[in-house]
Each structure stands twice: as C-alpha cells, then as structure tokens.
C-alpha cells in the first residue's frame, strides 16, 4: 500500500479525551502520512472537533500523546508549540476570519509576524494566495461582505499563508451549497497535489469523501473511539458493521422523495 512507504508526519498515540467524567473517546491511535488527505467522519458528539483541537494543540487530552515529526506536542513548551503552529494551518468551522480586517490584512498577518519580508513582497504573496482560492481582486473586502463559500475559501487562503506542511480543515463543506462544496473539493485536491500539503479534514459529505479522501477514519460515540479506517472503497466494502453501513448508505433512501410524494396523491 502507498502509505507504507510514506513516513508519518503526525502520530497520535493512545489519546483519550474527557469532559469532567464524560468520556469523549478513549485510546485512539493513528498516523497521518506525508502528503495524504485523511478524512475524519462520525456522528455529532463523537469527538471529531475535540480530536482536531488536541492535534492543533489548543486543548490538552486526558491521556495520550501526539507527535509531529517525532516531537511530542502535548507536553511541548510554548516555544515548541509556537514553532509547530507555524508548520500547520487551520480552517475553522465558521472561517474565523478577523472581521475587523480586510482579506488582504487577514492573510498578511501571519506573513508579517513570522517572516522578515518587505511589504510589497507580502502583498504579492497575498495576491497569489487569493488567486489560489479564486478570490483575486477581493483584497480590500471585509469578511462580512463575502458569501459563506467565499469566506471558507478566504479562510483556506489564510491557513495556507505560510505554506504549512499540514492543513486541518474543520467541517469543510458544512452549510455550503453543492456547487460551492464541489469547488472547495477541487481546491483541496489541487492544493494537495500541487503543494503536497498533508490534510486532516472533518466532513460529512459522502460525495466529498469519495472525491478527496485518501483514507477515512470513522469515530463512534458509543464505542468511544475509531471503529473503522481505510480507503473510502474499503469502508464501503466493510458493510457488515451496521454503524459503517448506516453512514455510507444514508444517502440512498428506499425510494426517491418525489415518488413517495406523488404516489400518495
């Protein structure tokens, strides 16, 4: 398999998360390989977002370790964590663009902070990044002036500002229309193939999963951890597990809606 000759970038080992006495997940272990697109799926409340937050270093787990290129980020010092964060990019669920700044300023912020580049060079890079997500010309727009899909794309552009090695995308296509969602998928594929960026994505869209995922990880609330992992095709073939089945078959109702409606009339 392709991933065997790839080296892991992020290793998650025996991770457990709890809220008080409420166990979110327990003993979760997996690797994220260089250049792969890993999609995490699961019902609401199974801990996908918590897992992502722990991997980004925003939240401490109850137990377990997360390694980035062999270095533990859970017990890492603030300096090391800062260095780690320059190597990752995060797209938050709602985009989380700073509403008081224009798109240009949003994207330029990490560049101004972490590099010693001249302002005109930064402007050029910002224009390039906006071009990458097809938002050329929107430099001086405020996030409030953009549609939901445009805000997501601008969020990706900001997350990509420092050419991170790993990109985390939370709820990639949530709340977007199908056409915009397909556009985002294409953007993800293009970025992954062109820049070799490793991606960890949380999404629920089946179509999107088939299209972008190299590997899928399925979390379950009751089981409190990973119940299945593999390529989308492998998971689809793994239909004996009712939980996997219900996820992958949910978009195939017994009869199309229009039939149900008109037959009753």
């Amino acid at each position: 398999m392709r991933q065997q000759n790839k080296k892991p970038v992020i290793e998650v080992k025996n991770l457990s998360a709890r809220f008080g006495s409420n166990i979110v997940f327990e003993d979760v272990s997996f690797d994220v390989y260089q250049g792969e697109v890993l999609v995490i799926v699961g019902e609401s409340g199974c801990g996908k977002s918590t897992l992502l937050k722990i991997m980004i270093g925003l939240q401490k787990p109850y137990a377990g370790r997360v390694f980035y290129e062999g270095r533990d980020i859970i017990s890492a010092s603030e300096t090391l964590l800062k260095e780690y964060r320059q190597n990752i990019g995060v797209l938050f669920q709602s985009g989380a663009l700073f509403s008081s700044m224009t798109l240009k300023e949003n994207i330029a912020l990490p560049l101004q902070t972490y590099t010693d580049l001249a302002q005109d060079k930064i402007t050029q890079i910002v224009k390039m990044k906006l071009g990458m997500v097809n938002l050329e010309g929107y430099d001086d727009h405020y996030p409030a002036e953009l549609s939901g899909g445009m805000r997501k794309r601008a969020g990706i552009a900001r997350a990509m500002a420092l050419d991170p090695h790993v990109l985390f995308l939370d709820e990639l296509s949530a709340g977007l229309d199908p056409v915009t969602a397909v556009g985002l998928d294409d953007l993800i594929i293009k970025t992954n193939e062109a820049l070799g960026t490793t991606m960890v994505i949380v999404t629920h869209e089946l179509e999107s999963i088939y299209k972008i995922a190299h590997r899928v990880l399925m979390l379950d609330k009751q089981a409190g951890g990973i119940i299945a992992q593999g390529t989308p095709a492998q998971l689809k073939g793994h239909m004996d597990d009712p939980r996997v089945k219900s996820f992958f078959l949910r978009q195939l109702p017994p009869a199309p809606a229009h039939q149900r409606f008109y037959d009753h009339k």
Binding site: T102, K127, M128, G131, M132, D139, D140
Partner: peptide
Amino acid sequence: KGIFSVIRDEALDHPLVASEES
C-alpha cells in the same frame, strides 16, 4: 511543477473588485 501551476499570472495583477465600503 505542481507548485508553479497554482500561481496564476492573472491573479497577481487582477484589478480590485469594488468594495462596498470603498
């Protein structure tokens, strides 16, 4: 090669889209 492909010349000197709060 892929990296060069994502850089689009037309994006670099694309005229600004008029902002509401110009």
